[in-house]
Design a binder for these strands. Structure first.
Lengths: 248, 248
DNA sequence: CGAGGGTTTGAAGTGCATCAAATAGTGTGG
DNA sequence: CCACACTATTTGATGCACTTCAAACCCTCG
């Protein structure tokens, strides 16, 4: 684990990265400093747990690279994937309000480099620096909106449409004619993220291929006709297409 | 419409009600005053719209009685119920962060008495009174937790279990032997809140009756054996029972 | 090469949706 | 207070979507 502050003398990059995250925008210098002083870069190997549901929540994390899965396990052992996050996304930060216990488990699904911060620092910062509280609010608000969409999607969309929606979110906004997408992690995981079984995912992807002019080669997907995909995917939505990614 | 501040000289009740809402806890006097000065009691008759999705969001509301449905309409015309709220719940307040447009429509499903506040006052209060920002944060955090549960519920629970879960949330925490619940609004509405069709709801309620010792008489439900209901409903959950209502 | 995880395919089952029709409730005007 | 219209709710029959269980396939990596 590397203390960020100690690196800073020679390397400003991490502080820069921090201030590029909306949560850390426009903070008072002393607030930002408190975070930097107590932050550590940590690496979690693929499969490693970052924290467990109901554990005391001492740290929250900012992802620098890799993928993290947030999930909850039922008493019967099945797991529900809440979200899968990557670069520049925060997780565990809501523990500030939750009796200091994590409300879900977090696991690295692709080797993760993350910066950890004590939840206590965040709590203090929110109370002392109003800017921090405001940033936290917009961050939660964006997340909430995203979740509203997910809930809507689960009840309104069928399996192929949910996959289509997932793909659209991965598309670069500047849409070129032919779009190539590399699936960021296991299909099995995408499946549970979208609330379906792996078998269903596989078959649904086939159906999507038949209906929306895409082709699949292992983990890469080609979209031949973006409009066709949007048409097939989004007509059940309450929002029209450029529904950009809001989590973070 | 009655201005709250003008009533206050003779009637303290409304200010009291306000400060019993977590969002208004421990505010600076001048902050609370700003809200009271600009608040109005409004009544919406059954079926009346409170606001429409994508309208400019000038006001948010605190429900004093009745039931409000929040929903979004898809491009195809079907509607997805986001939530159904009653007494002491807030709605429309998230507009502060959303480009000042409502992200869903709100309709009174049982005649509603609500207090309206300008979103602008909230925005100012959040920026000026750190306590206000903190309250808003915990409120959103509670809501977020509820959403996580809903997502989990949609993917791991079947129809009767979701109804059971819904009933449990309406139970008084001090559980007496025999519990009576008044279903607060028409059953079609509960059905869509739970992401199912009315027919499914009807049948699922029967199944629940057979499996969990409850009896139904019109709009009232009797729970004869709370433990049996919990047992049937919650075994697929990741949280054990007293998962009290967290929205608001 | 062979083991093991991820992915696909097949066959059968379950649960919810849909369509259609009967029944119960609710509010209205006579 | 009753008859009627209209709406909610229930019930039945059928179909589709997703799941489940099982087996095959594929790909990677030791």
């Amino acid at each position: 684990m590397l203390n960020l502050a100690s690196q800073l003398s020679d390397d400003q990059r991490i502080a820069d990265q921090l201030s590029s995250i909306p949560l850390f925008h426009d903070l008072e210098d002393k607030t930002l400093e408190q975070f930097l002083n107590q932050s550590f870069v940590r690496v979690f190997k693929k499969g490693e747990m970052v924290f467990l549901q109901d554990d005391p929540a001492d740290y929250f994390y900012l992802i620098r690279s890799g993928w993290v899965k947030l999930f909850r396990e039922t008493l019967e052992g099945t797991e529900a994937v809440i979200d899968v996050l990557t670069q520049n996304h925060l997780f565990g930060e809501t523990a500030v309000f939750e009796d200091r216990l994590y409300t879900c488990s977090a696991q690295a699904v692709e080797t993760v480099q993350a910066v950890s911060f004590p939840v206590a620092v965040l709590k203090a910062a929110i109370e002392q620096d109003n800017r921090m509280a405001l940033n936290m609010l917009s961050s939660m608000s964006r997340y909430r909106r995203q979740q509203n969409r997910d809930i809507e999607g689960l009840s309104v969309k069928n399996a192929p449409q949910r996959i289509g929606c997932f793909l659209l979110r991965l598309c670069p906004t500047s849409a070129s004619e032919r779009i190539r997408i590399h699936l960021p992690y296991d299909k099995t995981l995408i499946a549970s993220r979208l609330g379906m079984k792996p078998e269903t995912f596989s078959r649904a992807l086939q159906r999507l291929k038949d209906n929306a002019h895409i082709s699949i080669d292992g983990p890469t997907v080609q979209i031949h006709d973006l409009d066709a995909l949007i048409d097939y995917t989004c007509n059940t939505c309450s929002e029209s297409f450029p529904c950009k990614d809001l989590s973070s």
